[in-house]
Each structure stands twice: as C-alpha cells, then as structure tokens.
Amino acid sequence: MAVQALDAERLPIDWQKLALPAVLIAVAYGLIPTYASSYLVEAILLPFLALSLAAVGLNLLTGYCGQLSLGSSAFMAVGAFAAYNFNLRVEALPLVATMILAGISAAGIGILFGLPSLRLRGFYLAVSTLAAQFFVQWALTKFGWFSNDNPSGVISAPHLTVAGFSLDGPTGRYLLSVTMVIVLTGLVWRLVNSAIGRNFIAVRDNETAARVIGVPVLRTKLLAFAISSFIIGVAGVLWAFTYLRTVEPAGFNLDRSFQILFIIIIGGLASIRGAFLGAAFIVVFPLVLSRLGAFAFGGLFDSGVLDMSQRIVLGALIIIFLIAEPNGLSALFDRLKRRIGSRSS
C-alpha cells in the first residue's frame, strides 16, 4: 500500500479542527431532521450513512492495516441477517443490543475469514476474502433458517423502537442511523489515533520491521479484521433496517463489496473523513449522471445506458484518482481548504 498522508485527524487537539465536527453534528441533529424532505432522507442520506459506516470499517482494515478485502458486503450481510435473527428469536431484545450482537456476529465471521491473513499476503489474501463473499451469500440463500424460511431468503426489518419511541418513520430511521454512525466513527477515530492504530499502520507500512520491534503482527491483523467486520456488520444492519427495509442475500453481492472499496479509494485510504466524502460521492454521482444524461441525450439515455455509462465513469474515476490523487477526495479537500485559507488571509 502506498504511503498515506497523515490525516488532519492525527494531529494533537486543535480547536479549529473540532469546529467542523461540531458544525456537522449541529446540522445532523438540528437542520436535517427539521428541514430535509423525506426523499432526501430516504434516497440519499440513509444509503449515505450506511455506506459511510461500511467504508469506515473497510478503511480500518485496508487503509490503515493494509489488508485488502474484497468481501466487505459479506460482512454487511452477516450483520443484517444476524440482527434479523436476534430480533426474531430473542424476546424483547433492545434494538441497540441487537445491533451490537449483530456486529459481534460479523466480527466472529470476520476473524474466521481473517485467519488466512496470518499466512497469506497481498493478492493471495485478497482472493481468499472472496471466499467469504461467496460462501456467506450461498449459506444465507441455502439455509432457510437464516431468513425464517422465506422461500427466496428475503428478510424484512422489524419495528424499530428505542426506549419506547417508534423510529419507523424516515426521520426516526435517520436519527437512529446517524447516531450509530457518529458513535462508532468516534470510537474508530479514537482507535486509529491510539497506539493500536499506530500498530495497524506499522503492519501496513512494513510488516517485517513491525514484527522485529515487537508489534504482535498476527494479533494486530486479527484485531483489524474483527473491528472492521464489526463496524461493517452494523453498517449492514443500518442498510437493511433503516434504508432498504427488505433485503435478500443477493443484495450483498460482489458489486456491493467493490462499491465499498471504491468509496475508500475515491475518498482516500487511511482517512476517516475520506470514507464519508467517498460515500457521498458514490451515492450522489449516479443521480447527477442520470440528470446530466437525460439533459444531454434525452430519451436515448435510458436506464441501460445509464447503468453502462455509470460503470465506465466510475472505473475511469478510480484510475484517475489512483494516478493523480492517491489520497483521494480527502487530500483534494485539504488542498482546497488551504487554497481558500491562503486567499482570505
């Protein structure tokens, strides 16, 4: 993995740096619930939040710890189906506990499929994470128990209530989602800035040196797999319960895994902010493209053409980012901020 730039997040406490998160939280809890239309919430914010969290999780594993995974959506699926079953089979389990148990289930599967990382490196490991992708999808489809014997493996979200409040409406689901994302991202932020986070980076940048100075390399890799899968699992719950409400195993396919990988490439590897920027881009970009296409080509730009041109543009963007801005939108953002700063002063 190429050397990643030190994030703004890695510097000691700087009040100016805390101003932005404060504004964002104010917007998240004040402005959006009051003014956002239900279209904005349902079609943009909910998928954005779930994908951001998944990308934060993958970034921990791939961006910080350097272990390329192509099976992220399998862990989303484990989270979603585990939450469904915990909720179904355990009487009166609080929603938050359901989510945490779902995350722990995903972490367990993550450790299992992370075990090869103890012996394998690089491409051999990347290919072995595909095993998780295919196996999980197969198991969830094949064994009816996971979907309470639904013939096509479909699960539906239960009623969402926290402390007696119903969160089934768009705003309620949004608040649930945004709170989970903020809390977990905060914990990840603390983790990557701790000695453990620096162990991740050490393993990524030079595994041999890390081993020699006494970083517990194997334990560090498994920890990365576990925490990353936990977060991605909870993201899967958000995806299934707050965004789509009805999901099937096929929805967690390889394309979804690639999508999450693309988010962190475009947003910036080893950057928490990058996960959010990348997710925002991935969610908004098809909408913009379809508007632009319809505007420029009219009826010729049907859904098939949209789908294909979306693939082409996305693929091209990946390559362009890798060539021109390996640290992604996050670095682009920094440069922009500096330029504005130098102009105003």
């Binding site: 690089g122 990347a126 490439i265 098939g304 082409i312 693929g315 963007l317 990946i318 890798l322 060539i323």
Partner: peptide
C-alpha cells in the same frame, strides 16, 4: 505507464477500475 513504480495493490485496484470501463464500454 502513469502508475509505474506504484504498489502492486494500487495496480490491482486500477485494473478493477479498468474492468468496469471495459465491461461498460463493451455493452454500451
């Protein structure tokens, strides 16, 4: 050529992007 001397993982991800382009273009 623009990615020469970059890590194998970067190159792999580039070919992932490439596969999206070729698939999209072929069908377009």
């Amino acid at each position: 050529r623009p990615l020469v001397n970059r890590s194998p993982m970067t190159l792999f991800m580039a070919t992932l992007g490439l596969s999206y382009i070729i698939e999209g273009a072929a069908q377009l």
